[in-house]
Design a protein around this nucleic acid. Structure first.
Lengths: 113, 113
DNA sequence: CTCATATGTAAGTCATGACTTACGGTAAGT
DNA sequence: ACTTACCGTAAGTCATGACTTACATATGAG
């Protein structure tokens, strides 16, 4: 649980760009690499990482290899985020509403601003 | 937008661990480093990265320095995720329901299984 | 003032990973 | 069968970053 491969996979900007392009629908490796500033093998390696992270799946389509988004990996991130969202925000809000030291000192002196 | 520092910051397992500990509430650097397998300066450096990513804020409290979660960074990730969730899942579902080549061949022959 | 506590930063080491070119394998067209 | 297109992998380079120890600074206690 502490080792979430999806986060590491999406950390790289190029890999996020590839992943975002797949959000529009299935794409072959060549199409994905077309507009990117890196070589095609680089994209292929990125796709391998995304696949191992459960973020994409691949299927052979003739001589081409088509990749598409796998909801599983995205769901993992969402699950992690949801688990934190409430707890973290609650802790944050409790801290915001916590009286400051100046407030406490003022209260002890019976002062009101 | 393509360069999301929050993702890079949470990519490191140690940094995620530090961040998760802060979800329970504000902590000083020493407290955070106590149970971790890395040195205190390492934690300090991690906190710096988290801070620059908008994931935490810090405040001086006497000689100690207390860190707490900043909802802004978490919100950035959630925004990115939400923007993708619908689009990616829609593309995925459309692909699942897409007729396979075998189905198409069968349809052309007027076959039904 | 002196000392202990708490922290940030500098400098250096070392592993990881993102990228390149080169090559091998498979599918489709002629 | 030959050629072209498409792709994955191997090998090597190079930058980045995670970590360490050593040092400088600021606060609180005595």
């Amino acid at each position: 649980m502490t080792n979430n491969p999806a986060f590491s996979a999406l950390a790289d900007p190029t890999r996020r760009e590839v992943f975002e392009r797949l959000a529009g629908g299935p794409r072959a490796v060549g199409e994905l690499a077309e507009g990117l500033p890196v070589s095609r093998p680089a994209v292929s390696q990125h796709l391998k990482v995304l696949k191992e992270a459960g973020l994409v799946t691949d299927r052979a389509e003739g001589a081409r290899r088509v990749y598409q988004i796998d909801p599983q990996g995205l769901g993992q991130i969402r699950a992690w985020l949801d688990r934190f969202w409430d707890e973290a925000l609650e802790a944050f809000r409790a801290e915001v509403e916590r009286p400051t030291e100046e407030d406490q000192a003022a209260d002890e002196q019976g002062n009101r601003k």
